[in-house]
């Protein structure tokens, strides 16, 4: 692909802290290389802001290689921008052309309050995981990984669900701010594996209870989550979660 440079207009959400009302600020950036990542473009802008003595734009990022799920940006009306199956850090500037205006907003959901600029508080996801997204294993000698037989298909489906990086794009995309794609990925990942079986019922019940407490909406299967998920988590996981939930509700002891 041919390399080119571009000049862009950025409209970015600026908000001092949780309490500030926030507003959009417009910036012109020039000489942006088509080889840069979207975050590198922000680095260029931030360096300039620092030199000018202005407050740089706060945004979350860590790995910059599409595996940590930190880089939450809602770009031109789509979480993680225009490319499918891509995190913001893996979005490259060749997705844009010279003269484009790019609007960047934080994830919007009551359950993800804005901390500063484009940074949102996603600790609600951590609390959902703490409620049940784990298996309890007594420590001791490591068990041979091949000691427990697992059907290949199930292992693959569980693996695909385990690819969820907890980025929250599904919530940001959903008209109901539902976290069900995330929760269903975590529930499916463990429900499909023998190691997840012992805590299977309590897990789904507790995770859903926590999810509701955090103030996420309920799923109406519009499919927006699946469309924006950088890890292409399938919406079928949500149907599986529904089945897990019904099963737990109907057969649980207490």
């Amino acid at each position: 692909m041919e390399h080119y440079t571009m000049n862009l207009t950025l409209k970015v959400w600026r908000q001092k802290n949780k309490k500030d009302n926030g507003h959009f600020e417009t910036y012109s950036v020039s000489g942006i290389s088509s080889e840069m990542s979207f975050l590198e473009m922000f680095d260029v802008l931030n360096e300039r802001l620092v030199v000018e003595g202005k407050e740089p734009i706060a945004f979350d990022h860590d790995c910059r290689e599409g595996i940590c799920g930190m880089c939450s940006m809602y770009i031109n009306g789509r979480p993680h921008g225009p490319w499918e199956g891509t995190t913001t850090c893996q979005l490259h500037m060749r997705a844009f052309k010279d003269g484009d205006t790019i609007v960047v907003e934080p994830w919007r959901a009551n359950a993800f309050p804005v901390v500063k600029d484009l940074v949102v508080d996603r600790s609600a996801f951590d609390r959902i995981i703490q409620a049940g997204g784990f298996i309890s294993v007594n420590t001791g000698n490591a068990v041979d990984a091949n000691a427990i037989p697992i059907e290949k298909d199930k292992a693959d489906t569980a693996f695909a669900a385990a690819a969820c990086i907890g980025c929250g794009a599904c919530v940001a995309a959903c008209k109901n701010s539902s976290a069900l794609l995330f929760v269903s990925a975590k529930v499916s990942h463990l429900a499909l594996l023998p190691q997840g079986d012992p805590e299977r019922k309590a897990r789904v019940v507790d995770m859903i209870a926590q999810m509701d407490k955090e103030g996420f909406g309920s799923c109406t299967s519009t499919g927006a989550c699946e469309a924006v998920c950088p890890k292409e988590i399938s919406i079928t996981n949500i149907a599986r979660l529904n089945a897990e939930y019904a099963r737990a509700g109907l057969t649980t002891d207490k």
């Binding site: 959009f24 609007v103 907003e105 009551n110 995309a173 109901n176 519009t222 499919g223």
Partner: peptide, 18 residues
């Protein structure tokens, strides 16, 4: 469900995905 996003987006997602 509508109340779960008190502040909406400047550019709504519209048909990009659903």
């Amino acid at each position: 469900n509508r109340k779960k996003r008190a502040i909406g987006y400047q550019i709504p997602m519209a048909n990009r995905g659903s």
